[in-house]
């Protein structure tokens, strides 16, 4: 098994005929992802790399029995696209789009929660399960190796950096989840921890966080009391000044909270070692495994 995505997932690409949607459909197919349908309103009957395109999520579900969705729809329409996927009970719903208005995010997040659906993102690189050769995302698949470590992260390229370091050290991944770089995201760090903690194929966890919000602190507090599996953390932004957004909308120190120091202290309090540099993660994993 693994979490969220496995070989039984039947993936729909919303916004498949746009440039990003088309490009990453090809990349996902090449990796092995089971993409069975695409969707762009008004494009029924077209094909993208052999994938049939439908006008609505409902149609795609009826014809191709899709179970999960990845969204490449432009920001003004991404919230609506996610609502459409949620209405069709697709799970998970992965929203790659960046710059989605926060009002739309809040609405969609709570609609998904009410139905028990995992919405990943927005502003996420997506999910990858190397063992099943399934990626529902935009990450370079070759840097992730199959294994027993659950990886969750708020950033993209930093995750690739850490995954590449793990791969070089012969440490593989059960599933990697990009949680998204926005202040408001669907699946939270603590929810990802719970999934990995219940997954029998995940033996250890890596949490890659960054400044802003309290997602890491909450996860650390939960892990201290409820999680037996070993874990390693990394926090980006130790030297970031307060009050500045560091690239991600969510990466901002607000007053005295959301600092890297507070997050590192929370992990250490939970007995979870924290790397100083991305390359420390693989080294620390070798020590605990």
């Amino acid at each position: 098994m693994a979490v969220l995505i496995d070989k039984n997932s039947r993936v729909l690409v919303q916004g498949i005929t746009g440039s990003q949607g088309t490009f990453h459909t090809k990349a996902m197919l090449d990796y092995g992802t089971n993409i069975v349908a695409g969707m762009t309103p008004g494009k029924l009957g077209e094909e993208v790399y052999g994938v049939p395109v439908y006008d609505s999520v409902k149609q795609a579900k009826r014809e191709m029995d899709v179970t999960a969705s990845i969204i490449f729809v432009p920001a003004p329409f991404a919230g609506d696209a996610a609502l459409e996927a949620i209405a069709a009970d697709l799970n998970p719903v992965v929203v790659i789009t960046e710059h989605v208005p926060v009002q739309d995010e809040m609405r969609v997040i709570h609609v998904a929660r009410a139905k028990g659906i995992s919405m990943i993102g927005p502003n996420t690189p997506g999910i990858i399960t190397p063992g099943a050769k399934q990626k529902v995302g935009i990450m370079p698949g070759h840097v992730f190796a199959d294994g027993k470590v659950g990886l969750m992260s708020r950033s993209g390229t930093l995750t690739y950096e850490i995954a590449a370091g793990m791969t070089n050290a012969n440490i593989g991944i059960s599933t990697a989840i990009g949680l998204g770089g926005d202040p408001c995201v669907g699946l939270t760090t603590i929810e990802a921890v719970k999934m990995f903690s219940e997954d029998k194929d995940t033996k250890a966890m890596v949490l890659v966080g960054e400044i802003g919000g309290d997602a890491e602190e909450k996860a650390a507090a939960y892990m201290k009391d409820h999680v037996d599996k070993p874990a390693v953390a990394f926090i980006a932004g130790r030297t970031a000044p307060p009050g500045k957004r560091m690239g991600h909308a969510g990466a901002i120190i607000s007053g005295s909270t959301g600092t890297a120091a507070a997050k590192i202290a929370a992990f250490k309090d939970a007995g979870i070692p924290v790397g100083d540099k991305p390359s420390d993660v693989a080294r620390l994993l070798e020590e605990i495994l």
């Binding site: 950033s155 993209g156 930093l158 770089g181 540099k277």
Partner: peptide
Amino acid sequence: AGLTMATLD
């Protein structure tokens, strides 16, 4: 963004 922050660090 994460990689840039980690590089600064």
